[in-house]
Simulated assay, not measured.
Amino acid sequence: MELRSTTANDLQTILGWVKNNQEMVMWSGPTFTWPLEYAQLERYFHNPNRTYWSAIDTESQELVGHASLLIDNDADLMRVGFIIVNPEYRGRGVGREFVDAVVCDGFQASTLPVMKLGVYAHNTAALKLYESLGFSKTGVVFQTTVDEEQWDVLDMARPAVTG
């Protein structure tokens, strides 16, 4: 797998990975509205405080993942988010390799000592992945209603590895 900057074409591919409102919210939180449209992704893609990564399978050259990193030095905040893996590649270790690479690149891009992320409490696969990569739950940051279901959003944090 290789990481590269996300392109406008990648956004169109990502749009095809999100099939319904619950999948959209699971990926992006309350950022977008259903039905998800390309114009919403374009607005997301133009935040100058974010770095956008795409993961490419080196054999097939297919897009297999996307994530972004928000670094706000004034607020002492580094937050990885919008992590999504191509549904055809889930369960194959792609997410682990991708998120690990994003975390490493994020810490190389910033001197901030902690990286944070948010995840829905019922997203057990993502929780296990993030915990295995050194993230710890720091608490429920808010609750939201999605299609008449109550979802808890957990905050997680990981310190930079020193030495």
Results as ranks from 00 to 15, higher is better:
L3G: 05
R4P: 04
A8F: 14
D10K: 09
L11G: 10
L11I: 11
G16Y: 12
V18I: 15
Q22A: 13
M26W: 08
W27I: 06
W34E: 01
P35M: 02
P35L: 03
E37Q: 13
Y38H: 09
Q40I: 05
Q40T: 04
E42T: 14
R43M: 07
P48H: 09
P48Q: 12
I56A: 06
I56L: 09
D57M: 11
T58G: 03
Q61L: 12
H66D: 01
H66C: 09
S68M: 12
L69H: 08
L70E: 06
D72V: 09
A75D: 14
V80G: 08
V85M: 03
P87R: 06
G91C: 03
V99S: 01
D100A: 09
V103G: 00
D105Y: 08
D105M: 11
A109H: 12
L112R: 00
L112P: 00
M115P: 00
K116E: 13
L117R: 02
V119T: 04
T124S: 13
A125Q: 13
S132C: 12
S132F: 13
S132P: 10
S136T: 10
S136F: 02
G139E: 13
V140L: 05
T144E: 15
T145M: 13
T145N: 13
T145W: 04
E148T: 14
D152C: 07
L154V: 03
M156I: 07
A157G: 06
V161L: 07
T162M: 03
T162L: 04
G163V: 02
